[in-house]
C-alpha cells in the first residue's frame, strides 16, 4: 500500500563507504544481540568495515518520548562524540534511527552541540535501508521454501521512510513467499511507555495485529524493530497464537548465511 510520508525529508543516499559506525541500540544489546550480529555480518559481507563504538548506550528516545528532555539530552549528548569520523552511522532500528535522524536536531536546537547533532542526524541510516540503497545488496537465498509476513514499525515507516525496503529485500529471497496482513500500516500498540501507561489499549492493538498476522497463514513474521518484536511475539506467545517473530536482520542472515559470500 502506498503511504505518503509526512515529515520525512528527501533522502540522498551516500556512495558506498569503506567503513560505518554501528549503533546497536539498547534493546538489541540486552535482548536481541543476534540481530545486531546479523546486521554487522551482513555489512561485513558487503565489504564494509564495521566500527562498534564502545561507549554506546542508548539514543535517549525513551526519555524524549516521555517528555523528559533534560535526561534525553544528557544521554544523547554522551553519544554525540562516538562518531568522530564522517562515516555513516547505521542503526538496526527505525525507532532509534528516527530518534537520531529526526529528533536530535530538535533536541539540541539552541545548544552548543546543535551543529554536531545535525551532522549526526544527516548521516544516520536505518540498516535495511542502507543495505538496499547504499550497499545495493544482492541476497542469495540458501533456505528451504517458507512463507513470512512482515511488520514494518511505525518509526521505520513514517520517520525513516523505509516501508518498501523490507519487502524488497525479502523479494530477493527466491524461496521466501511474503504475505501481507490486513491493515499492514497500523501500529502494533507498542509505543514505548504507552504500553505501560495504557496497557489495555495497547493490548487491544497488539491483539488485532497478531490476529491479522495469523490470518495470513504465515507462522513467522519479521520486523525492523525490537519494540514491535517484543510486543507482537510476546503477545502471541502468551495467548498461544500460532505466529513467531524475529528481527528481519536475523532472518536475512540465516537465509543467506555463512556459506554465502
Amino acid at each position: 500500500m502506498k503511504t505518503e510520508t509526512a515529515q520525512t525529508p528527501v533522502k540522498i543516499y551516500p556512495p558506498k563507504p569503506d567503513k560505518v559506525y554501528f549503533y546497536g541500540t539498547c534493546l538489541i544489546d540486552l535482548f536481541y544481540p543476534d540481530a545486531g550480529m546479523a546486521g554487522i555480518q551482513l555489512l561485513e559481507r558487503e565489504g564494509i568495515e564495521v566500527i562498534f563504538p564502545e561507549g554506546q548506550t542508548c539514543c535517549g528516545q525513551p526519555a524524549y518520548s516521555s517528555g523528559y528532555h533534560d535526561q534525553a539530552r544528557s544521554v544523547a549528548a554522551s553519544q554525540l562524540n562516538l562518531f568522530p569520523e564522517a562515516w555513516p552511522i547505521v542503526v538496526p532500528s527505525g525507532s532509534c534511527g528516527g530518534m537520531m535522524r529526526q529528533h536530535y536536531p530538535d533536541l539540541f536546537a539552541d545548544t552548543p552541540q546543535s551543529s554536531q547533532a545535525n551532522a549526526i542526524a544527516a548521516r544516520t541510516w536505518e540498516l535495511t535501508d542502507f543495505l538496499l540503497h547504499v550497499c545495493h545488496i544482492q541476497l542469495k537465498d540458501l533456505g528451504e521454501p517458507t512463507t513470512v509476513a512482515m511488520h514494518t514499525s511505525c518509526s521505520a515507516r513514517r520517520e525513516m521512510g523505509v516501508a518498501e525496503v523490507g519487502p524488497q529485500l525479502l523479494s530477493q529471497l527466491a524461496n521466501v513467499t511474503l504475505v501481507e496482513q490486513a491493515r499492514a500500516a497500523e501500529c502494533c500498540g507498542f509505543g514505548g511507555t504507552f504500553a505501560i501507561r495504557h496497557p489495555e489499549i495497547s493490548a487491544a492493538m497488539v491483539s488485532d495485529k497478531a490476529d491479522s498476522l495469523v490470518d495470513t497463514g504465515a507462522t513467522r513474521f519479521v520486523t525492523t524493530d525490537c519494540g514491535c518484536l517484543m510486543n507482537i511475539h510476546g503477545h502471541a506467545e502468551q495467548s498461544h497464537k500460532p505466529i513467531q517473530g524475529e528481527h528481519i536482520l536475523s532472518f536475512l542472515w540465516q537465509r543467506t548465511g555463512e556459506a554465502h559470500s
Partner: peptide, 23 residues
C-alpha cells in the same frame, strides 16, 4: 513485569550482550 506481562510474555535477556560479543 506489571502491565506488560498481563498481555505478553516478558522478553528474554540474551546470554551475552552485543557489547560483550563485540569485545
Amino acid at each position: 513485569l506489571g502491565a506488560w506481562t498481563r498481555y505478553r510474555t516478558a522478553p528474554r535477556l540474551a546470554p551475552k550482550t552485543l557489547h560483550e560479543q563485540m569485545s
